[in-house]
Amino acid sequence: MCADTSPAGKDVLGFEPSRHISGDVIANLARRRMRWHRKYPRIEDAQHKSFTRPFKRFISKGVPHHLRPNVWRLSASRFAQKYNRKHEDVPILNGSALLQQARSNPHALTIDEDTLMQIKMDMPRTFPEHAEFKEGAHIYEELGHVLRVFAHLHPHIGYCQAMNFLAGVLLLTTRDAEATLSLLQCIVLVYMPDRYTSEMKVQDDVKILQRALNTPRYAHVRSALEDAGVDVTFFAVKWLLMLFVDALPSDQLLVLWDLFFLWGRRVLLQAALFLLHEHVEDLRARPDVNHVMDVLKDLGRTRALTPQAFAHGITQHGGGVVPKLV
């Protein structure tokens, strides 16, 4: 089996590719794949205890796509175990039996009418341009199952718009509803607590970002945004709630998620600062609100970075401003 390939002309997640990836980036990925294979030949057996410093460094240098389900599971399990010890009342649960039920007898799940309606409405509005998210496709149906079981397991959250996109990317990556359900629980309960309830604590994250942008280091970014009349909230709420889905091209998005599962929520804020910094010339090109928003909605216009360069860029930003979260 050849990893890191996808249907002809599509990117690694099966989307229309938004940019060309240069030869050296591809060569780098191939090299990393070899290194992983040599060093961790049986990653599927890896357990919590294998989370050593070299392993973490390996992750930050780039994860071969076919290993992502395992690597994400391992990264998230460290946070999940800690969480489950503290929250015995609403733990992260294995939902395989419930997923079976959702497939065979959906009425067995207890989900309130509004939540069900909202899920039903959002399924066709998740990735309408993607072949596997057409009504009747396997992944499409599994998206519904995952979201319904989540709502059944965690009625205090139920379903929040944006979770459909997260579950969608998880399904396209893991190709497995069970793994998707458990990672979705990790994101919503552990990594991003109270971000998907009416508390909308994502506002706190936006404030941190605003504070960072007010420091002298980001004066160039701040002035580019101010000149165009763009407020941080205009784009940051969506970036954060969607973990950059829809804003970053698949290759970079997945690298960001590798680091997010590894290091936690602060990665999102650091990435936001790094990406703003990287795009500042583009933002400045025209101090016009539409132009600036177009750039920020589609961050794939700059060159593709190797995972290593992307991770390095992220670690260079937010120091001292972005607290250690999660």
Binding site: T126, E129, Q161, A162, F165, F234, V237, K238
Partner: peptide, 14 residues
């Protein structure tokens, strides 16, 4: 279009 995604946060056009 029948293909709009669900809007998250807010968006605008001028």
């Amino acid at each position: 279009s029948n293909q709009y995604k669900a809007t998250i946060g807010a968006d605008f056009l001028t």
